[in-house]
């Protein structure tokens, strides 16, 4: 366990950043409004070296969120027990204030596809995802947060809306939710739905964390807008507006700025966290 670390029971209702090693020095020298960081669990599952040393140093000052990208909670096949054991080892050592994963799948048979792939929302998938979440929470000995995906398509077989599906997962498992408002904006645009209506229907009382991030713009075969979750650009104004809309309903929450590709210099990223701080203060 990280015995020198300050312990955080919960993520603070303040801006956080997705941690990138190139910001190690800047983040400590000039954190601005940032009080917590989020790491991708799988990048910290090596045996040692710089990643774990940096995490040890940062956890003395910042609250920590461990965000898994490889558990495949939405998979048709049983969860990878070896991977779950690695997650437990990391969480037991780092003692994060929060652990979160995605409503998606990425593992099929022996293959890991390194993307967050979509699933239909049916009674069958609900039962399966709920049992996977229960298994994760039992193994880790903590509540987990589940993140809504960015959707580019839907399954004809789906019988429930995403918000109903998430609501039912919360009811069945007691998990919390990570509300990614960039994903909401992407999905709503791509599927011709209202982002605000999604927020209105979403079980906001169970939100433990919010994500904002950048996306790319493309068009589909018919020329309709097709937004792609890229985490490689500044957050666009309509997503900030959706954050404002959400926070007006929920009150202050931990808000994470995600910027994973074409990572900018620290002042650029810090400016994004300042915009998040403004939203939180409104």
């Amino acid at each position: 366990m990280l015995d020198s670390a300050r312990r955080f029971e919960n993520l603070p209702a303040s801006p956080g950043v997705g941690y990138k090693p190139q910001h190690f020095t800047d983040l400590q020298r000039d954190p601005g409004r940032v009080e917590w960081i989020e790491i991708h669990a799988e990048n910290y599952m090596g045996d040692g070296g710089r990643p774990l040393a940096q995490l040890r140093a940062l956890s003395e000052r910042f609250a920590l969120s461990v965000h898994g990208v490889g558990l495949s909670i939405g998979g048709e096949t049983p969860l990878d027990r070896e991977h779950l054991t690695r997650l437990k080892k990391l969480c037991d050592w780092a003692q994060p204030a929060s652990f979160s994963e995605h409503l998606a799948w990425s593992t099929h048979g022996a293959e890991f596809l390194n993307d967050l792939l979509p699933l239909p929302y049916t009674e069958k998938t609900l039962t399966r995802v709920a049992s996977h979440i229960a298994q994760v929470q039992e193994t880790l000995g903590r509540q987990m947060l589940l993140e809504n995906p960015s959707s580019y398509l839907v399954f004809a077989e789906s019988t429930r809306s995403e918000t109903e599906f998430l609501k039912e997962l919360v009811n069945r498992t007691g998990c919390g939710l990570l509300l990614d408002v960039n994903n909401v904006f992407i999905s709503a645009t791509n599927l011709g739905l209202s982002a605000q209506a999604y927020i209105d229907a979403y079980p906001l009382a169970h939100v433990g964390e919010i994500h904002v991030g950048g996306h790319d713009e493309d068009t589909d075969d018919k020329g309709a807008p097709l937004l792609i979750d890229s985490h490689g650009k500044p957050v666009v104004d309509p997503v900030w507006a959706l954050l404002d809309y959400t926070l007006a309903k929920t009150g202050p929450k931990p808000v994470l700025v995600e910027w994973d590709n074409d990572v900018p210099d620290w002042p650029t990223l810090r400016a994004e966290t300042e915009r998040a701080a403004k939203a939180l203060a409104a």
Binding site: L113, N114, Y152, L153, A156, L191, D220
Partner: peptide, 29 residues
Amino acid sequence: DGLEGAAHSPAGKRYSVYRNNVTHSLIAA
């Protein structure tokens, strides 16, 4: 089969987003 875009249109290029994500992320790795 069984994948759709907005208003029950065929998924087409929308499915390709996942193709690109998977292939490009692995090439980047």
